[in-house]
Design a protein around this nucleic acid. Sequence first.
DNA 1: TGAATCTCCGACAGTTTTGGTCGTATACTA
DNA 2: TAGTATACGACCAAAACTGTCGGAGATTCA
Lengths: 155, 155
Amino acid sequence: MLKLTKKADYGLMALKYLAEHPETPALSAKDIADAYGIPAQLLAKILQRLTKTGLLRSHAGMNGGYALSRDAREISAFEVIHSIDGPLFITSCTKGAKGCDLTPSCTIKEPLARVNETIAGVLKSISIYDLADRDPAKAAEAGSSIGQRLVTLTL
Amino acid sequence: MLKLTKKADYGLMALKYLAEHPETPALSAKDIADAYGIPAQLLAKILQRLTKTGLLRSHAGMNGGYALSRDAREISAFEVIHSIDGPLFITSCTKGAKGCDLTPSCTIKEPLARVNETIAGVLKSISIYDLADRDPAKAAEAGSSIGQRLVTLTL
DNA sequence: TGAATCTCCGACAGTTTTGGTCGTATACTA
DNA sequence: TAGTATACGACCAAAACTGTCGGAGATTCA
Ligand code: FES
Ligand code: FES
């Protein structure tokens, strides 16, 4: 139904939270989970996956936790979603592993792949920083035009 | 996982097929299903839904079947997907019925809604006609630049 | 040393969503 | 009236998603 999983949602929330607390050296999974009221163990697993893909840096032991491995501006929503939900593909037949059974007959795939790319492009153009709360003052100062991105779809 | 359902896929295929056969007054669900090798009964249900939402016109009885209710250029992929998969979109908490349980804490929803809108825009800018096979000659003549759409994302 | 805190990781059950089937009622044509 | 085709709802099986548990390793601090 073209919606991202709750896990990816949680992951984005967590990264956003980390981006909003750059001063702290690390935040534990429980800290973040409590902040949003989401299952701690589940979030832990999500953060672990994000660590494995290099978006986060982890530190065990007391006062340990997770921290962004790069600047929030350098982490795209696409990377997060991709890390958690795996390769992102619109077409129900994931071309990755094995082609769809009815690949020969279906000629719809190619144009949809373009759409897919476009959506990926949109997601790639959004960084965690974009998601994080800006100063209300800043938002007011800039009026409504906080940011704009142009995406081209070639079909 | 951000992928559209097989049903929507089937629906798009079927419409594309209808768009490619404008001469025939109507095509039965079985005809189309056979052409692509997809379950006939399932496709029938899909076409019925598309009929109910006004994208198709149906006709029972012998030599009956389905036909596009408008020009293929006037039917967007968005409409098809929306008809089949229901009000779609990104955020795991469907704002439609009832807000998510943790709506207050989650500040990530608004920016994602913009992304959502952008994707919807992409889908809306694509018509069944765009999906249908063009004459190979035509494609060659026009070179690679068959069509381009611009989508703006405001965040 | 050892207790406390935290990450790491696989396995597992409960629920929801999908994909697909069946049976039947209805509409239209010849 | 027989044959074809849509309309619709109930139903089921398989897959995906969400969330939980239990244990194993790191790290810090007393
Ligand atoms: S559905 Fe698999 S190739 Fe189109
Ligand atoms: S997950 Fe429900 S409001 Fe964000």
